[in-house]
Design a protein around this nucleic acid. Structure first.
Lengths: 212, 212, 212, 212
DNA sequence: GATGAATGAGGATTCATTCAT
DNA sequence: GATGAATGAATCCTCATTCAT
């Protein structure tokens, strides 16, 4: 048995994170034991404790990873860039990618609503809560940036209530993702692109004049 | 000091169900122990087991209750009735009522996504799964009825793809409810009525010609 | 619904006792709950508590019943009677009857060894223990009487150690009954009569001269 | 204070098994909680679950251990060996050892009859049942081998019905062991050797000619 | 006489966590 | 870096028992 190198340990860590992602998504955070994660990753519970100080810390690590994996990509950056001529198009591109099996599995899971619970103070410690808020804030700020960009490029009206637009887009996305789970995923997926167009269309009506 | 009449037992049962609803909604099904429910209801764990055969059975009972409480009301029936001149209006009335603190608490909770998990086979037994499917089916069928009614009354186009309309409405509602939890509830609530109008507007574009 | 008469209550009591016998025998005392007994008897738990003050008391009642049913019969009395010319023959007759399905089910059960446990102080309260001892004492005294009778009638030697004979007969019977459960009952049952003859033969050798 | 080496874990496991043996024997399987076992062994319940997957699995493990401890010894092997000139003598030696405090405690206990219950399908799962059957089969096969050996060596008649002999010996042994518990153990123990001689004598009469 | 409701003390089991190796 | 052993708290559930009706 070769000595474990630093590289090996990174592999183990990713291994654990991937297992956690899969199992937390499928069975939910509560229903998944560290034993399950360890078994799935082919390591022992102790190994998890080497890389993460607790189950919650593993969750935290997973959040970080997901944040990086999902939202820190070129398309998002392009959509936010003032140089981009078609922010809404880029956003659409990004979302089309996001709404794939994997992302759905994640968003969709009890996992996600567990995050909601945590954010609402129902459980979890403060560090976790703050971390989640931070991520969310960054996410919202990204979206805001893109929407602003779209306004500047004339894709959305000048009198748009930015927060409302971001909000409504999120409503649509979260609802969509949840629905995918319950309903016929394939059917609903086929229309995603069109639904998105309609959503962009709808957003145009979220103006200072029309909203409360 | 509990009395022992049949009427009292009904009270106790409702008591337990209400406690379960509250706690399952807030902390989620997994994070809520029967001890918690019992304590909240002011009874002993044994009392729960008198009325429900297991924790899952309690969940089942709660589902039934919620189904009755939320969806079996006059407004829904009116909206579905061919005699109703304004089905969409009635539907709006209903949804405005639904989207209250209480309903949100429920829909919003890890509880609801736990149901999603169950439906997807992630957990729970078959009886539970079937029960949930049955409820959902009934719910969808109600919505379908209302939408059809609206088509007949000329509120929605003849070439509307009914299922898509029902689907999209659900996307909006679920997304809305989830968002309420994360975002500023009050702010978002203020616009619900308007959002709903926009949604009805949007639905008109879900026609045979435009969808895949 | 007619008023319950005294006769009805006796029926209920016997009903409960029979159910207890059956279930205690099959599943053992511990593994049988009062709920089981009640269900089997078609009454409620409360009814059991009307007739018996506790689960142990039910056991006690059952013991009494069994004692009466099994050992207080004419054949035993005849075998003990000085007027009887063939005590050993009568004893054999009795045992042939005893070794029937029902008796075996009883003797054989965890139930019986539970009694052993109780007698050894492992569990049960003193009243129960005493009751069992009393029954046992009576049983042994019966057997002793019969053996003495057999000695008097010349069926067993004068120098027989009576207690040893009673003891050895019991060894054989208990062993036999247990074996019936484990091994092929039918096969072993066929030879019971012959085994019994051999046992009587063997007993003749349990004399003052041969034993310690 | 537990050490964490492999050797220590073996000690812990034996510790648990011994405690289980003692307590299951005395109080019976049902009446003994894993808490009891843990306390007696000086470990926590969790430790039991590290070594055994369930209470039933602990029972299984105990059975295995007992099988090894009681029946896999030199004397038995010698008695079965064709080289042995006095199989019956060796068998007697073995049984004299077996019928000691410890073995009696085991055989005698509710524990043993619980096994009977299990074998009869009254409880326990199939794996457990099969395991017990397997052990029993092996035990019977050993006994058969010894009896055959005795026939070959002229200690028992050629026309002996082997199975009947094994059966009757078992009847005697089980009966004896049970009786020891109920009656005066010391008294009865004194005569065991003589009883055994009588049993061997009796066995000679279990021939093809005399049995059904 | 008997029922139905409720209690409360355990009991088996799971699982996050610790820690010696 | 990681494992295996063990802890202990919490959880679901069972069940004998009580008691108002």
């Amino acid at each position: 048995m070769p000595k474990r190198t630093y590289e090996d340990s990174l592999v183990t860590k990713q291994n654990i994170l991937n297992s956690a992602k899969r199992l937390f998504s499928r069975r939910g955070y509560e229903r998944t034991s560290l034993s399950d994660v360890a078994k799935y990753a082919g390591v022992t519970r102790g190994a998890i404790y080497w890389h993460f100080s607790s189950k919650e810390d593993l969750l935290l690590g997973l959040l970080e990873k997901l944040n990086t994996d999902l939202f820190s990509n070129d398309i998002v950056n392009e959509a936010m860039s003032p140089a981009e001529a078609d922010p809404l198009g880029k956003l659409k591109d990004f979302l089309l990618v996001l709404v794939q099996e994997d992302a759905i599995e994640f968003f969709n899971s009890t996992f996600m609503t567990m995050l909601l619970t945590i954010m609402n103070g129902g459980s979890g410690n403060d560090e976790l809560r703050e971390k989640i808020y931070a991520q969310r804030k960054r996410h919202v700020s990204n979206q805001t940036q893109i929407i602003k960009n779209a306004v500047n490029k004339g894709q959305l009206p000048k009198n748009l209530v930015i927060e409302a637009a971001v909000e409504h887009l999120e409503i649509f996305l979260i609802g969509y993702i949840h629905s995918c789970r319950v309903n016929n995923v394939d059917l609903i997926k086929k229309n995603f692109s069109y639904y998105l167009d309609l959503e962009f269309e709808l957003m145009k009506k979220l103006t200072k004049e029309t909203l409360v």
